[in-house]
Amino acid sequence: MRLKYIVELKGVLKLPILSKVCAVERCGLIKEETSHMASGAQPYDGEATRPPLPMPTNLTSAFTLKEVRQVKAGITVVDVVELDIPTGEIIALVGPSGAGKTSLLRLLNRLDDPVSGAILYRARGLTQYPVQELRRKVGFVFQTPVMFPGTVRDNLSMALTLGGEPGTDPDERMAAALALAELDCALYDREGDQLSGGQKQRVNIARALMTSPDVLLMDEPTSALDPETAERLMETTRRLSREQHLTVVMVTHRLSEARRTSDRTVVLERGRVVACGSTVDVFGSTTNPRIRAFLDTGT
């Protein structure tokens, strides 16, 4: 199924036209999940131990979002979002502060659940996967890097314990993850407080890669880094996506970063998707004056 994207949408208060087209195309897939959510069904108590489902392969969509809505503290932070996230590409979520970027990202590996709507991962509802298995396949890199107690090695081996593939040599796996994150093996035995901000973020990326994810969610991974370090991290991200066929969904405040790094860009405003499409098209052809003004702030 080939996805189509329309660069610009009618306006803030209108649903994305393209998303409606996509929703129709995926009607059969979405219907089941929507009815599950609409009926008010809750994850059952044994969710964490739900038996694993075989992961579908050869799909063009990593995620499909159908009328997803999220409310926090009585405020709608994600408002009827419909979106397709293709596999193997880098998607940038941009928008002003409070647009719902992080809230949307958190829904994708179930750190939060939406109040309504459906999210499909590889054509199946998120709630159909055992949540731990889902999270191992959908890694998350936070805005502020978090180091677990101990050394870099301890951090990586903890992740390996949680979701490493059986039969792999731990040292080999850790070395590979460090290499992918472009970290020097000399840092193996350093504690978290002996690392720079950029190094910590790379350890966090390496740690997320230890569970062999198909998708990497990145919440403003460069916000605390200097421009040079941020650019190098983005280069690493591009290479990871290209070489590992990793789908990357990245929240960023830096529009120049989104422009240089991502294949596709989604613009959010007050919880709604106001523009989405190829990054070249979104940045080059958007004519809506308000969105244009926002996009031009980063150039």
Binding site: N109, L111, Q132, R135, G139, F142, V146, F148, G163, M210
Partner: peptide, 20 residues
């Protein structure tokens, strides 16, 4: 909170995430 969610995001159990 950040540490706990970092554990959870890796697929940890709640026991592992809240161990510290």
């Amino acid at each position: 909170q950040a540490e706990i969610e970092a554990y959870l995001a890796l697929g940890a159990t709640y026991q592992q995430a809240s161990q510290q």
